[in-house]
């Protein structure tokens, strides 16, 4: 049911990203008895980052299940339940904890469809909190976008605002493949961890889906393309405003989904601007920035005049504020890199 939400958006009801996610999950729970949610602290607590607030009240413990701290067990169980006909939504509290359960994720969840020659389907949503910028240090601040996008068999969604969050959540739950839904902690709209402006958006009350694999051009500009995702969409937009004041017009592309990746929008943008800055909150080498640049090189080599990237410089995320700020690309760094690129 891919509605056209434009009319409702006019009505102007605004939600935080977390409320938008919860609204989609609640709708699916209400309308499909095969859907259920599992995770640590998702029932009474409502999710550490408010991804399931209020669901216990409406749906009860059978469908909104707290589970022991046993990620291999309950994520593998989501896979098994899906193969037995259900549509589980399972939460990995922080993506960093993938280490204790990665076999169930990438050797099982991600590969069953292929290994079975398409005979089995695995409609699981694995939702997980990503990102830093609040001093949670090396084991609780990673995004790991590239890791999950690199391993074949999982669709990977990274919403940057409430409207997208709801549409992608509906789409993820209705999808017959495993979808890794990565929500950035700094975007959830938590009172204790404020979000940048622009994340809270008008959200239609009706259900709607958004297609995977369509990036969004959040701002047009002729001088360079800034390709990014998640939290850094907002940092890039803030940088673009400052750049405009000094006469540099940056185009900002929000990737929105990594698998599938909208290569066409990347290539078209680079063809227009000739210059590419990729901004990422994942580790620099062997990852997302390299993939986007390779896409531009493969699709628009003749137009490509200059390239730069900003990402975590291949170090674990440090704790102290000056250290974390140094490694996690900020608005100032984006402005500087863009100016240098524009001048090349």
């Amino acid at each position: 049911m891919s509605a056209s939400p434009a009319a409702e958006v006019q009505s102007g009801r605004e939600l935080t990203l977390s409320r938008a996610m919860v609204e989609a999950i609640a709708w699916e729970l209400r309308n499909n008895p095969d859907v259920f949610v599992m995770g640590e602290d998702i029932a009474d607590y409502g999710g550490i980052f408010s991804s399931t607030t209020g669901l216990l009240n409406e749906f009860g413990r059978e469908r909104v299940m707290d589970v022991p701290i046993s990620e291999t067990g309950f994520i593998g169980a989501a896979l098994g339940a899906a193969m037995a006909g259900m549509r589980p939504i399972v939460e990995l509290m922080f993506v960093d904890f993938f280490g204790v359960c990665m076999d169930q994720i990438y050797n099982n969840l991600a590969k069953v469809t292929y290994m079975s020659g398409g005979a089995c389907k695995v409609p699981v949503v694995l939702m997980t909190a990503v990102g830093g910028a609040y001093s949670d240090a090396a084991q609780h601040s990673q995004t790991l976008y590239g890791t999950f996008a690199h391993l074949p068999g999982m669709k990977v969604v990274v919403p940057s605002n409430a409207y997208d969050a709801k549409g992608f959540m509906h789409a993820a739950i209705r999808d017959d493949d495993p979808v890794v839904y990565m929500f950035h902690k700094r975007l959830m709209g938590l009172v204790w961890m404020p979000s940048p402006k622009g994340v809270k958006t008008p959200v239609p009350e009706q259900d709607y889906t958004l297609p995977f694999g369509e990036a969004a051009v959040r701002r047009g500009g002729r001088d360079l393309s800034i390709v990014t995702l998640g939290l850094h969409v907002h940092r890039a937009l803030a940088a673009a405003e400052r750049l405009a004041e000094v006469g540099v017009e940056a185009e900002v592309v929000d990737l929105r989904t990594l698998v599938p990746l909208d290569r066409r929008t990347i290539v078209q943008s680079v063809k227009r601007t000739g210059k590419l800055l990729v901004v990422d909150e994942d580790y620099r080498s062997f990852g997302l920035t390299g993939e986007v640049i390779a896409t531009a090189a493969e699709g628009a080599l003749g137009d490509l005049k200059a390239v730069r990237r900003l990402a975590i410089p291949d170090v674990p995320i440090p704790y102290a504020r000056p250290l974390e700020t140094y490694v996690n690309p900020g608005v100032d760094q984006i402005v500087r890199a863009a100016q240098a690129l524009a001048a090349e």
């Binding site: 240090a137 090396a138 084991q139 674990p316 440090p318 704790y319 250290l323």
Partner: peptide, 15 residues
């Protein structure tokens, strides 16, 4: 989160 901390400010309270 100070430079003279056990881990030079890289680890933090859980590390």
């Amino acid at each position: 989160g100070r430079a003279t901390g056990l881990c030079k400010g890289k680890g933090g309270h859980m590390h």
